[in-house]
Amino acid sequence: MQSTIPTPQTPWATSIQQRLNTAGLIMLGAVLAGVAVKTTGLSGKLGFATSFFFIASLLIFIQQLRLRDLQAAKDSLLSSFASLAIVLTLIPILSIVGTVVVKGYKGIHFGMFANDMTMASVNDPVTAGGLLHALVGTIIMVGVALMISFPIGLLTALYLTEIRGKLARPIKFLVQAMSGVPSIVAGLFILSILVIPVTQELTGLMGSLALSILMIPTIARTAEEMLLLIPNELREAGVALGATQWRTVSGVVVPAAKSGLVTAVILGIARIIGETAPILLVSGGADALNFNPASGPMGSLPFYIWKAFLTGGTEEAYARAWGGMLILLIFIVVLFSLARYLSGRKVA
């Protein structure tokens, strides 16, 4: 006797027929919106987009009302508005990335990685000068900021996850509060505590210190999240084998969270690499190559972009600014993808 095994069915899923109907309604909406733009006072892309959205949602609303009931029709409205919102969120992202790539492409040339701006002004053709000094300055400043922030951020995270003292809750709160400190306040703080009373000189080191204030909370919070992912069994195993807490943390917990901590560092760098306001206040901003963070003004990518954009005004200056912006954006995208990749591989 032959028995037939029924194929699994999903009667609740939207059928192709329904999908086609909805697509048809959306097309109809687009046509009607086109008609509305032609015949009424509405004009331009904005008029078309607005009328398209309202007509299409109305059509789907009526379709749902006819097929089912008012509840389903209202439900369709929510999905229309949610889709609208995500489109509105995506437009700026795509527009920003597109603008930077299209406009920055012209400002990129090979010599820019070998020259600084001592012999060129921002209004010279883009092939003159370059951003070597800015690149070097940014790398040095971010590197020094990292050397200051990483130990502090890691210790804060360890306090929150390993010691869990009485103050853990307030400290967590303060770290959160610190991440909301406006970047210009960080710059003012370094001015008030070091530059004006002590050194009297704007240097790359001051820029690093200001950036550290913005970097510490990012590193501390990410590192804390990563350390919390380490299973408690590992800590217990370490202690049960007779290790002290110090040995457990340094020999078991931190190595297990290594890739997570690298993620924290990368996100910290991505947070500060494009930070402009404190750099403008305290790092001086130079057009010449400077390898010494402790003396003399130091250039940086944000400063390079800022200067080309605000003091220039010619096509060349804008191309220069967008070129610098493209380099900065590439840095951020690479760092961000790296962080995604590392934290995607499960910790330990």
Binding site: P92, I93, S95, I96, T99, V100, S183, L267, A270, R271, I273, G274, E275, T276, A277, P302, I305, W306, F309, A321, W322, M325, L328, L329, I332, F336
Partner: peptide, 12 residues
């Protein structure tokens, strides 16, 4: 997008 620098938003 949350990691984009404010400079970029400003110029854009």
């Amino acid at each position: 997008m949350a990691a984009f620098p404010s400079l970029l938003f400003g110029f854009w």
